[in-house]
Design a protein around this nucleic acid. Structure first.
Lengths: 231, 231
DNA sequence: CAGTGGTCTAGACCACGCG
DNA sequence: GCGTGGTCTAGACCACTGT
């Protein structure tokens, strides 16, 4: 059951993928598109939101809608501590807080335990890339000082297990503003919990990646025999 | 920068989480909510879409908006062949097709190669659960016949590597209709490629999970020393 | 049938980017 | 100042669910 929005999106999509609309070029303004397709502007905007979610176009308030150059996707590599990606500007804000609610559950520490919080925002040039908050128990002082070139992590610790939970959810208002994404489009949210060999939670990280240009990749290597069950 | 929609969603959210609105109960109709909050119905609907994306409410066309009972999330376990989850009805449709375009790239076979396609739709009671298409080269005949109780997979093969790519994207019109989700809300899309010890691609699977109630979990076990780099 | 949500209309008003 | 997209309005019409 394709709706008007789907039909219009499909038409623009083929114009983009066939090269009829060149990367970087601006689309006609929304009122003009509305006139052309004989629909109202909200319907046009819904069609554009679809293309935006696919990473085909970029919207810029006050400028217009642009065909996105062949997409360089943001790739999150799972299975271990996130490593700094070359060519990325990272700003970190460090604060000292105390565990409460959801956090104390994640880190398996009593409420009120001292934590260090790293609020990280990474940019790829001018475009926001990812937003993350990393929590580390205060007594596990990171041996690596987080700065522009390294990601906060207690990577010197012997990690035993990393669990990553992913879901698609809508951004909070501040996430939408910070990542400069459409607040009606999803982010890829990742909750990562790292445990050391003693079973202690060493780090919990909450990441939000813009859904229109991010993906997460997990590679599992199997030894001689495939594992039969897990959960 | 919270908008009207965010403010209304926040108000309803606290009413739900504090138990002021009981699970299973119906919310006032959208026009009534619009009158109560002194906004138009589209604004109310945006606020409700937010709550829906959080899994707090369920919308049913012709009936109303309902507070969702404490959410039983759909959990996708990464890192290996998906196993049948107890208490799930799975319907499978098998067709014979030939590789082309994206599929031949994924499976690393020449265009035109014979494939078997399994289209799977799983239900949890009456609520759609996941939609998946699994592709297997025709010459790798599955030793397990896919039926209601097993998931199609060549699990008898010695798998060497499984790669899973996740992203958040909007559903196609058929996905939205099949999973009965809001077409403006994201699905969690997973592309899984399994390789055997000989380096052959044994299976490619395209999964779509409803974003309002699904999550994916990946657990990585590290041996004595943490791995330093990957990609 | 009446009541509900789903889609769409034709605007208004504000905020942003640029000359 | 002008053109752009972002938010919101106050409806209309259709499709679905129940009685």
């Amino acid at each position: 059951m394709p709706t008007l929005r789907d039909i219009i999106a499909e038409d623009l999509r083929t114009q983009i993928t066939t090269g009829h609309l060149k990367p970087g070029s601006r689309l006609p303004s929304e009122p003009k598109l509305a006139t052309h397709y004989k629909v109202s502007t909200p319907t046009i905007r819904q069609a554009l939101a679809l293309l935006q979610a696919e990473g085909l176009i970029e919207k810029t308030h006050g400028k217009g809608n642009f065909v996105r150059p062949p997409l360089r996707r943001i790739t999150y590599l799972g299975g271990g501590p996130t490593l700094p990606t070359p060519g990325l500007q990272i700003s970190v804000r460090t604060t000292k807080i105390r565990a409460r609610g959801h956090l104390s559950v994640l880190l398996r520490v009593p409420a009120g335990s001292p934590l260090t919080e790293f609020q990280c925002l990474s940019h790829d040039g001018t475009s926001p890339h990812s937003l993350s908050r990393v929590y580390i128990p205060r007594d596990l002082t990171p041996t690596v000082i987080p700065d522009e070139s390294t990601w906060p992590t207690t990577s010197a610790m012997p990690l035993a297990e990393v669990e990553e939970r992913l879901c698609a959810r809508l951004p909070t208002p501040v996430e939408a503003a910070t990542l400069r994404i459409n607040p009606t489009l999803a982010v890829l949210a990742i909750t990562r919990v790292a445990t050391d060999t003693a079973g202690r939670v060493v780090e919990a990280a909450l990441l939000a990646l813009p859904g229109d240009r991010a993906e997460a990749v997990f590679t599992t290597h199997h030894t001689s025999e495939g594992r039969k069950a897990e959960g």
